[in-house]
Write a protein that binds this DNA or RNA. Structure first.
Length: 270
DNA sequence: CCCGGAACCTGAAGGC
DNA sequence: TGCCTTCAGGTTCCGG
């Protein structure tokens, strides 16, 4: 569930960790380490200082002194909680990073889907990602080029991280509603006017999500344990049966590529 | 290469 | 009260 606005919020709120050093790492769920082995991961982190914390798509990056990168992906239910030393244990804390000032960073993940990497070159993990929605080089024309010749539903391509990085199921629905485009429209058949609207809608809903510090629809928490408020501003996502805020029609739910997709059948005609 | 469906995971919620 | 089904969704894998 953490999408770009949630990961961006976490990145911003973890900035106090820059300059801290990893004292040790506890791994309760070895499979969460995607690369290298859990033991090499632990040994590789020990004693390393965090020089920078950044985000790319839905990935969180810790650049470490000496050139390595710790990369985390929270997938659906992951969250990172900053705690003081000796905090009561949480059964869903799959990893605990112990820092040199006594604080602890808990990787909490009920559904065990989150993954971690320790690599020299971040490109090894991030290589296939599409453009960042807020990159100045990302324009409506660039979005159009990436949709060219694609017959898949636009909703499916918005979720494809190789097309565009950072958009997930909730913000995809919000962006399509904002642009008044049906989720099942074939991408290649969108007009340049619609692509421009979609481009603007994507940036608008992501920006709004960041301003609200993320959407807490289920297990998303900010590093201090607080919830985000972005879901309160959602217009169609997860709102089947409610009324469209624009025209009053009942919001529908369909399945696109196995994902629940919410839209207004009147504002977003097929 | 492109597309769509299944699988990975587990807790919450709803039906009977 | 309890069992069963459905839903949730980011990513990867696989077959067509």
């Amino acid at each position: 569930m953490p999408e770009l606005p949630e990961v961006e919020t976490i990145k911003r709120e973890l900035q106090p960790l820059v300059g801290r050093r990893f004292r040790d790492v506890y791994l309760a769920y070895g499979k969460a380490v995607a690369y290298p082995s859990p033991e090499a991961f632990r040994q590789g982190l020990k004693g390393k200082t965090i020089e920078e914390i950044s985000r790319r798509g839905k990935y969180l990056l810790f650049r470490l002194a000496g050139g390595h990168h710790l990369i985390l992906h929270l997938r659906m239910t992951g969250s990172l909680l900053l705690k003081s030393s000796g905090s009561p244990p949480d059964p869903y804390s799959r990893s605990i990073f112990y820092l040199d000032d006594g604080s602890e960073l808990h990787f909490r993940d009920p559904r065990r889907m989150g993954r971690m990497w320790l690599v020299e070159k971040a490109e090894k993990v991030l290589g296939k990602l599409g453009p960042e929605p807020f990159d100045p080089d990302f324009t409506p024309q660039k979005l159009g080029e990436r949709l060219e010749g694609r017959s898949a539903p636009i909703k499916a391509l918005l979720l494809d991280q190789a097309v565009l990085a950072g958009v997930g199921n909730l913000y995809a629905d919000e962006a399509l509603f904002e642009a008044q485009i049906h989720p099942l429209r074939k991408a290649a058949e969108l007009t340049s006017e619609e692509i421009k609207r979609l481009y603007q809608a994507i940036r608008k809903v992501l920006k709004r999500g960041i301003q609200h510090r993320g959407a807490s629809v289920n297990t998303y928490f900010r590093p201090g344990g607080e919830r985000g408020k972005a879901h309160l501003a959602f217009k169609v996502a997860r709102r089947a049966g409610e009324l469209c805020p624009r025209c009053g029609t009942i919001i529908e739910r369909i399945v696109v590529r196995g994902r629940g997709s919410y839209f207004c059948p009147r504002c977003q005609p097929l």
